[in-house]
Simulated assay, not measured.
Amino acid sequence: MRLLHTMLRVGNLERSITFYTELLGMKLLRQSDNTQYKYTLAFIGYGEEDANTVLELTYNWGTESYDLGNAYGHIAIGVDDIYGICAKLEAKGAEVYRKPGPVLGGDTVIAFVRDPDGYAIELIAD
């Protein structure tokens, strides 16, 4: 068994694809429309689905936002240059709401950023 993907509902598919591909360096792996049920799926990630866990972005046509609730935590991405990626994200208008620095009580350097729909992403220095 292996973890295949995590699904996030998004209010603007192109905006989300741009965020994850241009700002976080993922690749758009595949995209499909379901005209009968009025939704579009886009699978993005750092490698092909047969060997990597990916994100499934689901756009339900006509839905521009979601109540994220209080159960969702975050996804985590390992990065080589956490300070550089955070500077790049902020320069492109992304909200880095926890600046890079050591985790409380430890040495691991982390930061937190929000995607365009408000989902939290933890960046962890590799």
Rank of each mutant, 00 (worst) to 15 (best):
E122D: 07
E64T: 15
A125P: 07
I85N: 04
P100G: 10
I77K: 03
G25D: 08
I124D: 10
K92D: 01
D107H: 11
A42K: 00
R9L: 08
E49A: 05
K99G: 06
K99H: 11
T108M: 13
G47M: 05
D117N: 15
Y119S: 10
V79S: 00
N60I: 04
I75K: 09
M26G: 00
L57C: 05
R30I: 02
G47T: 09
E95P: 10
V54Y: 02
A51E: 08
L28I: 06
P102G: 11
G62A: 01
A71R: 14
L8K: 08
N34Q: 02
R30Y: 00
K88A: 05
A76V: 03
P102K: 15
D115V: 07
G73A: 10
C86M: 00
I121D: 00
A42Y: 04
D50W: 02
R114C: 00
T63G: 06
M7I: 06
I77W: 04
I75L: 14
L24S: 00
L41A: 08
R114K: 15
N34C: 02
Y83V: 06
K88N: 08
T21C: 09
L28Y: 01
N60L: 01
A87Y: 06
Y72S: 14
Y20T: 00
M26D: 02
D81M: 05
L123V: 12
T108Q: 14
Y97S: 02
Q31V: 06
G11Q: 12
E64H: 10
N34P: 01
A111D: 03
K38H: 15
V79W: 01
E14G: 07
Q31N: 02
I124S: 13
D115W: 11
D50M: 00
L23G: 05
Y20H: 09
L41E: 10
L29G: 02
D33W: 14
E95H: 14
F19C: 02
P102E: 12
E14H: 12
A125Q: 15
E49Q: 14
N12R: 09
D117P: 11
E22R: 13
I75H: 06
L24I: 03
T53P: 09
E95W: 09
G105V: 00
L68K: 08
G101L: 07
T53Q: 15
L123T: 11
L123Y: 13
E49C: 01
L3Y: 09
K88V: 03
I44E: 04
D107W: 01
L8M: 07
G84F: 01
L55W: 15
P116C: 05
T108G: 05
P102V: 10
G47R: 08
G45P: 14
A94E: 06
A120K: 12
I124F: 14
F112L: 05
H5F: 06
G84A: 05
I17Q: 00
V10A: 08
A120F: 04
G45V: 06
L68F: 02
N70W: 08
Y46D: 05
L89R: 12
G106R: 12
L104Q: 12
T40L: 04
H5T: 03
S16H: 06
E122L: 04
T18S: 13
H5W: 04
Y46H: 05
A51R: 13
L104S: 11
D33H: 13
E48K: 12
R9Q: 14
V96P: 02
Y20P: 03
S32Y: 12
V113N: 08
G78M: 07
R30N: 12
D81I: 10
I75F: 06
D67T: 14
L89D: 03
